[in-house]
């Protein structure tokens, strides 16, 4: 069996190598409360795609954390009935995928809200101003300051606003809010679910990024999207004397620490040839989920489109009953 990481039997037992800060949940409960107390200021505009007879396309702008203007694509089936909604998150460092890609769910009768992460390939605004280096990846942005100053702490908070939108926008079925994403998108999907659990009924996550930073560093996979970790050591801790402190700080934005609070059904996917997000870091995330879950493993696939996984989304988000959605994929 091909693999870039430990053997599959070990992967299944692996529980992660990165420390979790002691006040992790205290910190996040406070942050979630803050973001739920923000005034919900948003506007819808006609998108560059005209409405079709069956489907409407909108640019959605919302006031995010620290007042940043956050953009999302909003695609909604035109029907009198309330429709389920998928909160869609994108890979690093791109943007919400094209309008046509977002319409696949609309074809299946689901609305989509697809947020652009601030300061990446989409239109959302990054307010910046964080202490520390900005010349490397977003993972380490703000690492020299307080945990709430981390770039990803802010992005995680912004995902909560998408849940609030799903509860507020007209014509959406607030009992059927689902979340989906791959890579960074999978990380955000899982965090968004963990932080807003009563509202989210299902989540699909393909090869999540932002997990088990210490393991990535130990494996020398701190390249490509994790390259910020290597830069941080080279620039600020060349002898590796402050690793415990650094990785504990990164624990606030480590997806594996969130997943224990997920109780809804989770569909997970991993390609064992993944050389971007090492399979062990993904297993650390999925093994922590205590709710119903199915982990699909693709031995010959890397960090790439996996059509067979995508096809599982049709029934996972299509079946009426939550308790059957994993069984009937």
């Amino acid at each position: 069996m091909p693999t870039m990481d430990m053997p599959l039997e070990q992967l299944k037992q692996y529980r992660g190598s990165t420390p979790c800060p002691e006040d992790f949940w205290e910190f996040w409960e406070k942050k979630v409360q803050e973001v739920w107390e923000l005034p919900l200021e948003y506007e819808l505009f006609p998108a560059e795609i005209p409405h079709a007879k069956e489907t409407a396309f909108y640019d959605l702008w919302i006031r995010g954390v620290r007042g940043a203007r956050i953009h999302a694509k909003y695609v909604k089936p035109l029907t009198e009935q309330k429709v389920p909604v998928i909160l869609q998150f994108h890979g690093y460092p791109g943007s919400s995928r094209g309008w046509f890609e977002q319409t696949a769910f609309a074809g299946m009768g689901r609305a989509v809200i697809a947020m652009d992460c601030p300061g990446q390939g989409g239109s959302s605004e990054d307010k910046g101003g964080r202490p520390g280096a900005t010349a490397a990846d977003h993972i380490i942005m703000g690492l020299a300051g307080e945990p709430e100053q981390l770039y990803y702490a802010e992005v995680f908070m912004n995902t909560c606003l998408m849940v609030r939108l799903a509860l507020t926008l007209e014509g959406l079925d607030s009992d059927r809010i689902y979340v989906n994403g791959a890579s960074q998108g999978a990380a955000l999907a899982l965090v968004c679910t963990a932080l807003n659990q009563p509202y989210i009924k299902r989540v699909a996550a393909l090869y999540p990024f932002l997990s088990d930073y210490r393991r990535v560093w130990e494996m020398d996979r701190d390249i490509i999207v994790y390259n910020g970790l290597a830069y941080h050591t080279r620039w600020f801790d060349p002898m590796g004397e402050k690793l415990e402190e650094t990785f504990t700080r990164l624990g606030y934005i480590d997806v594996q620490n969130f997943t224990e609070r997920i109780t809804c059904p989770v569909l997970c996917g991993t390609g064992l040839m993944d050389d971007v997000c090492p399979p062990s870091t993904q297993f650390a995330v999925f093994s922590g989920i205590k709710g119903p879950k199915k982990h699909l493993i693709f031995p010959e696939y890397a960090h790439e489109e996996i059509p067979a996984f995508d096809d599982k989304l049709i029934s996972f988000f299509g079946v009426e009953e939550d308790e059957l959605c994993l069984e009937q994929i």
Binding site: A104, G107, D311
Partner: peptide, 16 residues
């Protein structure tokens, strides 16, 4: 390759 996934191709239904 092969025809794109069922999921991918479902997009066309959204525009009739």
């Amino acid at each position: 390759q092969a025809s794109r996934s069922w999921f991918h191709l479902s997009r066309y239904a959204a525009v009739g």
